[in-house]
Simulated scan of single mutants.
Amino acid sequence: MHLTDDDTLLFIGDSITDAGRDRTDPASLGNGYVHAIAQTLHARARTGPVPCPRIINQGLNGNRVHDLASRWTTDVTAHRPTVLTVKIGINDTWRRYDRGLPSPIPAFEACLSRLLATAPAAHLVVITPFLLPATPEQETWFDDLLPRTDAVLRAARAQGAHVVRADHVLHHASQQRSASELAPDGVHPSPLGHRLIADAWLAAIDARPAS
């Protein structure tokens, strides 16, 4: 994928995408992986004749897949992105364990598949959910999360999306660093965790990651 100045990159998902963005400011990208991607692309643009696409962050903390569906028209379609990145799934798992709110995987997969199939973008990128357990209780979440991740992969591949395996990237990093350095609560990345996701995204679309 070759980005141009005419591209609009839109990112939608949960709090990991949101990352504290100012929702009153359309230009706010938060302090997470979306911001890290923008930093890299803008730095490249300053050093030579390379594109600097428009970037929009539509992450919203707490979202599950059906929340994305409820705002898809206003928060995705209306912006007419050329590259759409979707990261969703961990809250569909989390809410089962902390609030007793199930998100059955067949319904989850069907909803995500419909969204990806109706995406207005020429290029799709899907980031897998991940978990680096911070408590013994979180270890049990994999019973729900692993088949949900498989569902995300099936939905993504059915639409020919680029896939960013955040679960693999962070698990690999946790072999050399403590999980708390990457995601202190097991779910939300540290600045380093966000940087790793950003670099994986850049690699997936053949854009040069930060050194």
Rank of each mutant, 00 (worst) to 15 (best):
L196E: 01
I197T: 13
R21I: 12
V34H: 07
D150K: 03
H66P: 00
F108P: 09
D75F: 05
T8M: 09
A36T: 03
T82V: 06
T40S: 14
I197V: 15
T4W: 11
I37C: 15
V50P: 00
L9M: 15
Y33I: 05
A78L: 04
Q159D: 00
W94H: 12
A173E: 00
Q58D: 00
D92Y: 12
G160R: 06
I55R: 07
C111D: 09
A122Y: 00
D25V: 03
A155G: 06
L112S: 07
M1C: 10
S28A: 12
T4R: 13
V34C: 10
T47W: 04
V152L: 08
R96T: 15
A156T: 11
T8V: 15
Q159I: 00
R95A: 08
D92L: 08
N61P: 06
P120N: 01
V125S: 02
W72K: 06
L145A: 13
L10F: 04
D206P: 00
Y97G: 13
P136C: 12
C111P: 09
L115H: 08
E109Y: 02
G193R: 05
G32H: 03
V34L: 08
R99M: 10
V76K: 11
A121I: 03
A110G: 14
F108L: 09
S15V: 02
L131E: 06
E109H: 13
F11Y: 13
Q39S: 11
D14H: 14
H162R: 08
D144Y: 10
W141C: 02
L124S: 04
L196D: 02
L116D: 04
C52Q: 15
D14A: 14
A179P: 01
T135Q: 08
E181F: 02
H172I: 08
T93M: 08
T73I: 12
R64Y: 01
D6A: 15
R99E: 12
P147F: 11
A173T: 01
M1I: 13
S174E: 06
H168Q: 15
G62S: 05
T93Q: 02
L41K: 02
P147C: 11
G100L: 01
D199W: 03
G193T: 01
L182S: 03
P184S: 13
V86C: 07
A158K: 14
I37R: 02
A45Y: 09
S103Y: 12
